[in-house]
Each structure stands twice: as structure tokens, then as C-alpha cells.
């Protein structure tokens, strides 16, 4: 199935670069500024992480950022307020990445209605596999929000059915395990890409473990975009509220690298 929003707004300027940021780390004011910086640097889509107390798919870097954001008092309502401020200045494509419990507890209907109001068109939910997504997708569809499907190195015989039912774009997980930078990515991403390409025209983005420009450039051969999370959080670990320029440079050089 084709989805014009992501095709027309994210994957329409060469290979897409998709940075991730944990909302509220170190503060929501910082997150708001960092999002605008990322857009300015050429980010095609920004993944906003809604922090969860027990993120089972995250490595230590994003776990730590989530814990700090929650300690600083970040809540879903405050995140929506922050996005509203972003929307006063920018229509940069945004998706939420979070675990299902914060959405479930907030109220699925209320959550997706709010996403619609703020022009957030996708959610990435690492603890909602293909078998469980219907409950949430039925509601999300009503508000024009896609639930982004994930394909992993262990998906094998599941890739086709996941790809067939995909909406928005497909998140290809580069490696086994949790998020976090890796020196080496050994998965045969070309093979996964080939199955997806034979099945659907939905665009793909590869994430998990991508760290360096050379890695991003190499891996981007097998997808329409690249997602980077932990490497950005590490910049914020180091520079805190003063990460603006560092983030700008990183995003700009990544976008350039995957399109050179």
C-alpha cells in the first residue's frame, strides 16, 4: 500500500535521514529547540521518544535518557504541549516512538486524536508486534496515523506478511538485541531489503546501532533512509542543553553522507 504522506514529505529528498530524540532530555525546552535544529540541518523526519519507565528494547544510552527525562517531570501531556510549540514554527514530519503502555493508559483514542491535531502521522511501538497491532491500528487509522511496522534479522518467514500489511514506512532493525551504537553490523540487510522490495512499495528505513558516517553510507544502500538514535543521545549526554551546534553538525553530515 502506498502512503502519500511519508512518500511525499519524508522520502522525497534523496535518502532520508531520521534522527531520534528522547523528549524531555535534559528538558522539554531543549527538545523543542533540538527538533528545530535537526530540521534546519536537513532531517527528513524526526522520531520523538516518549520516555517509558521500563523500555525493554533499549540499550543503556536511551534507557538512561528516558530515566532522566522522567525524573525531570516529563509527561505525555507536557510532550504534547512541546510539540504544539514546535508546530507553531514548523511542519517538519514527526513520529512518536514509545512503548504501548503510556498510550494505552492515556487512552488510545485520546492519544491518536491528539497526534492528528498536531500532525504527527506515525507511531513506532517496539512492544507491539504484527499479531497485536490491530487493537491500536483500528483507532490510529481513524486519525490518519500509521503504526510503523518493524522487521528484524530474526523475522525471516514473517517479513512478507509484515511488509504486505505495512503502512507509512517499514523500520528495518539492523541487528539483534537492543538499541545502541555498534562497531559492526553483520546482518544481511541486502537480503531483507530484497524480500521487502518484492513484496511492497512501502519505503524502508534502517535503524539500531548506526554510529559513523561510513556505516550510515554503507547501510543506506539497502534502504530509503537511515535512523539514528543512541549516537544523538550520546551527544546530549556530553553537551546537555548546549548540544544545538553539535546536533546540527551531526545531522547535516549524516544527511550529506548517505546522499553522496
Amino acid at each position: 500500500m502506498t502512503n502519500s504522506y511519508f512518500d511525499n514529505n519524508v522520502f522525497n529528498k534523496g535518502k532520508a535521514f531520521i534522527p531520534f530524540i528522547t523528549a524531555g532530555y535534559p528538558t522539554l525546552e531543549d527538545t523543542e529547540r533540538f527538533i528545530l535544529k535537526m530540521e534546519e540541518a536537513g532531517a527528513d523526519l524526526i522520531e520523538i521518544g516518549i520516555p517509558f519507565s521500563d523500555p525493554i528494547a533499549e540499550g543503556p544510552v536511551i534507557q538512561h535518557a528516558s530515566t532522566m527525562a522522567l525524573k525531570a517531570g516529563t509527561t505525555l501531556d507536557k510532550i504534547f504541549d512541546m510539540v504544539k510549540k514546535v508546530r507553531e514554527k514548523s511542519q517538519v514530519p514527526l513520529v512518536f516512538m514509545t512503548y504501548i503502555n503510556p498510550i494505552f493508559k492515556y487512552g488510545c483514542e485520546k492519544f491518536y486524536a491528539k497526534c492528528n491535531e498536531l500532525n504527527i502521522r506515525g507511531t513506532i511501538l517496539p512492544d507491539v508486534p504484527f499479531e497485536e497491532k490491530k487493537e491500536f491500528e483500528d483507532v490510529a487509522k481513524l486519525y490518519d496515523v500509521d503504526i510503523i511496522s518493524l522487521v528484524t534479522p530474526a523475522s525471516n518467514n514473517r517479513i512478507r506478511k509484515i511488509a504486505e500489511a505495512s503502512r507509512g514506512f517499514i523500520y528495518v532493525v539492523s541487528s539483534m538485541g537492543v538499541t545502541g551504537t555498534r562497531d559492526e553490523i553483520t546482518t544481511d540487510l541486502g537480503a531483507i531489503d530484497e524480500i521487502i522490495r518484492k513484496t511492497t512499495i512501502t519505503k524502508t528505513a534502517i535503524g539500531f546501532g548506526i554510529n559513523t558516517l561510513a556505516q550510515a553510507k554503507e547501510i543506506s544502500k539497502h534502504s530509503d533512509g537511515i535512523i539514528v538514535g543512541s549516537a544523538i543521545i550520546k551527544i546530549i549526554d556530553k553537551y546537555g542543553s548546549n548540544s544545538d551546534e553539535q546536533i546540527f553538525d551531526f545531522v547535516q553530515s549524516m544527511k550529506k553522507a548517505i546522499n553522496s
Binding site: 525493554i56 528494547a57 504501548i100 517496539p126 512492544d127 507491539v128 508486534p129 504484527f130 499479531e131 497485536e132 518493524l150 522487521v151 528484524t152 534479522p153 530474526a154 523475522s155 525471516n156 518467514n157 514473517r158 509484515i162 532493525v173 539483534m176 538485541g177
Partner: peptide
């Protein structure tokens, strides 16, 4: 009940 786990673990 259900199976709310990452795709990485589904086949296993």
C-alpha cells in the same frame, strides 16, 4: 494476556 513483545523475539 497476549504477546506484546519486540518483533525480534516473535519467531522464537
Amino acid at each position: 494476556g497476549g504477546q506484546y513483545i519486540p518483533e525480534t523475539l516473535m519467531n522464537e
